[in-house]
Design a protein around this nucleic acid. Sequence first.
DNA 1: GACAAAAATGATTGCGCTATCATTTTGGCA
DNA 2: TGCCAAAATGATAGCGCAATCATTTTTGTC
Lengths: 345, 345
Amino acid sequence: MPSSAADVFPPSSSDAPRSVTLKDVARVAGLSPITVSRALSTPDIVRPQTVARVRAAVELTGYIPNLLAGGLASKRSRLVAAIVPQLSNAMFAETVQGLGDQLAAHGYQLLLSLSEYSPQRESELVAAILSRKPDGIVLTGINHAPETRKRLLSASVPVVETWDLTPTPVDMLVGFSHFRIGETIARYLLGKGYRRFGLVWADDERAAVRRQGFESVLAEQGLASPPACEEPLPTTLELGRRGLATLLDSGQAFDAIVCSSDALAQGVLTEARVRGLSVPGDLAVMGFGDLDFAAHTVPSISSVHIDKRAIGRQAADALLARIAGRPLATPIIDVGFTLVARESA
Amino acid sequence: MPSSAADVFPPSSSDAPRSVTLKDVARVAGLSPITVSRALSTPDIVRPQTVARVRAAVELTGYIPNLLAGGLASKRSRLVAAIVPQLSNAMFAETVQGLGDQLAAHGYQLLLSLSEYSPQRESELVAAILSRKPDGIVLTGINHAPETRKRLLSASVPVVETWDLTPTPVDMLVGFSHFRIGETIARYLLGKGYRRFGLVWADDERAAVRRQGFESVLAEQGLASPPACEEPLPTTLELGRRGLATLLDSGQAFDAIVCSSDALAQGVLTEARVRGLSVPGDLAVMGFGDLDFAAHTVPSISSVHIDKRAIGRQAADALLARIAGRPLATPIIDVGFTLVARESA
DNA sequence: GACAAAAATGATTGCGCTATCATTTTGGCA
DNA sequence: TGCCAAAATGATAGCGCAATCATTTTTGTC
């Protein structure tokens, strides 16, 4: 039962009690504000009994520090910002989870923005993010608007690019080579004797690089680029089904379908079953990402494993090290990948 | 190829050029800082030609406002914080996506924290969040530590609880009734003639309420609480398979398996197929959440549709209205649910 | 117990911005 | 043209905290 409208008017400004500040705590504790500040942020340089007095006063007053003020004064915001294309994509959701967990474990908070795969949008987001003076920034991918790069550099804030690999990151990088994944998949499938490939592929930049890697190996063997069905993002089981349907209905013959994601592969598996095609007997299927279901479908999906969560965790570690002034062994971390051969290919 | 260690030492503080401030822009534009501030935040009360001069100076200097300072002075941070249990759970990822999109469209940024389903952790996160002086807070669920509620109220910040329903929210609420979902599922399945139920159920608080709703209807019909296999979070296809296996191996007979999520249902479907059980012929299967794949598996999964993204969007709208001082029609928004009958049950 | 060194605490100042109030400029109208 | 109200711009102060430097207290040593 909704309450009356009167209940939901905003509180008038007068009834918002002025919030408790350091000064209030100091008064209650009988100390100077700066000592209270130290007792809370660097208790090791304050006498234990003083710290105890401060703790008691904090408890009594219900004091919650104001990080806007603290950040302004100290130039450290304890905030890390991340931009990912979408959260609807389980891959990035995992990375954000890893990033968030690791940051929280070190007292940092996460400011999250979604770029929807648009460099233009990313550029605006970076500007908005920089206004919060984050201690670090995590980006997805390595292709940014020129403006983005310029802004990041002039802000001289630690940056980690993720989910891709380049010798020339803006600053630091935690990722892997999509091109090599494409090559690896091609060699694996060729090695198993497959020759008539079909692609069910998402329309994204990193998937495109995997495709280049894949086709480069085919080219070496004198094989032409295979027919492909391109799908929008985010990839789903439905799109995978439709992708296979489109390929098969084109009248061409295939012995292996390569997908740019496990969700697509699951759809291909489903459509194949509906059409009475056995996998991998009639048709092999290859996925990418090794999502949680890949190992447990029937048949299980051969895929490429990426430690999605570790990307987030290591990005956090790289930033935290840089913030703490610890030197990094290397600014470029290649988390690698593993082709996981299962039943489907 | 990693560069040498020397490349990755943190920059010394001396080479970080002092960043451009409002004062710098004012000097370049030949105006006072406060006029520049107005030209940027409330251009309608500044002469167009003055705004243009400011714009030019901003462009020239590459000025990026400092929202820490702005927020401290104005008591408005343009920040909204959200706490969800996990991002690995596609349900919450969708809600966060909806929330983030809507906030971004109105110039707000999202501070995201993960509680891992722990009220204790949630309580700590709320304290940490309040230090950033967010203009609004979005929580998942309605059961919070007493400390949490106290902190939120004394901060007098707009709050939206989500994903559940209660007549007594902390402030505002956007959700739906889990109990009624349980009842609805029970009535639907009883109506189709199923009587020998088995549950594959996640160990979470809201799922538990759906189960109560389900069992309450069974009790009305004089039916006992069905056998259940409890699974940890997040739910996966694998856990669904294992759940059905456990139930069947217990030697009992079932005509319908009810799952607390679509991922579990997909696993049950898979395990049933492996065991040669036809769905819904030998065994009906019911999911929850209507994830993207539910409509496209074979057989398709009967489920309960929740507009996950709308929860985020409407939570954002409620906060934005409150922040803008607009009265809300009601502080409690029930987004409802729809049982979607498909092939599996 | 006297002294220096070290540890603990305090006073002042400024981070960069906006609220508030004061002043100047502009434009409309007789 | 002159006057007044309205519009535009400016000066001042303060948001809450920590960096910096100054002062007081404690500790250890002979």
